[in-house]
Design a protein around this nucleic acid. Sequence first.
DNA 1: TTTTATTTTCAGTAATTATTGAAAGTTCGG
DNA 2: CCGAACTTTCAATAATTACTGAAAATAAAA
Lengths: 166, 166
Amino acid sequence: MELQQAREKFYQTWGTMGTNWGINRTMAQIHAFLLVSEEPVTTEEIMEELLISRGNANINIRTLIDWGLVQRELKAGERKEYFTAEKDMWTISRRIARERRKKELEPALQAIDELRSIKDNTPEGKKFRSRMSDIHSTASTVDSLLQRFINSNDNWIVKMIAYLIK
Amino acid sequence: MELQQAREKFYQTWGTMGTNWGINRTMAQIHAFLLVSEEPVTTEEIMEELLISRGNANINIRTLIDWGLVQRELKAGERKEYFTAEKDMWTISRRIARERRKKELEPALQAIDELRSIKDNTPEGKKFRSRMSDIHSTASTVDSLLQRFINSNDNWIVKMIAYLIK
DNA sequence: TTTTATTTTCAGTAATTATTGAAAGTTCGG
DNA sequence: CCGAACTTTCAATAATTACTGAAAATAAAA
């Protein structure tokens, strides 16, 4: 397999993986391209390499920056913006976990929490509350593990893995 | 808030959470309905409660059964099928993790693995391989943690949490 | 075997989500 | 301030994904 072919396969793999895990295909592909680019790249280059429009490139680059996965870089004497990706995989994982937790776990957790306290003292009401408490309890545990991961450093991760894999 | 209102809020919350995490809305809502149903329910009841078609109900119930989240039940002297959900949250989490790993992590891992060994000895080729190895290494670690979780029992989970949260 | 209750399938359609591309906005040098 | 270089926005459209409902298949009862 040729290098360029391999790169394209990687964009595609990363893109598919992204869609499966709640990140849109283009965003993941731009990230993939930046991950295998040694030098900072421009919006133009992203558009050409992935065959996407300027608007699409722009909005997804911005989201990657918001998530902390990509940084803007300016070159002296140039007006164009250049972009580079964070390359450390554990840092990438933590940043993704942080964003998804914030947007997709936190609100659900809060909704379940509220449902724990409906006023209904029939046996069905009691059973419902107890079910919600049960779900809330497990979800909270997952949430705090996730928060610990998000705020951890690589050293913590290594120790955790050593303990868990053993 | 009334009980029925609370149930509906729960269907909606669980459905949204599902879509965010790669499970389709109806599948998650049927699961939610079964989670708060003490008695086994029929396809008819699911259709009425969630206002969905028979085809939609059928295909999603089947997927829930495939995932091991729902069981068929037969009542003596009746031809209709009844359904009940697994209620233990850690078991539910393990089953979901298992299915998603199988369909969405395993293939990506394998693709990355193949990209590690392209034949290209330019500096760019070497850098690409090293990037792929790096990604593969982190992804493998995540994968083995996940597999350990999937095959674990509640006791293991409790111990793990005790260690990690402390 | 025929009738009836029930489940499954799937082509057509609807709903949702992502992308384009051109126009508007911004920023900077002269 | 003006114009060029570049970035951002967003209405229209395309692509993807999910759902409906009626017909076909299945299975039990008569």
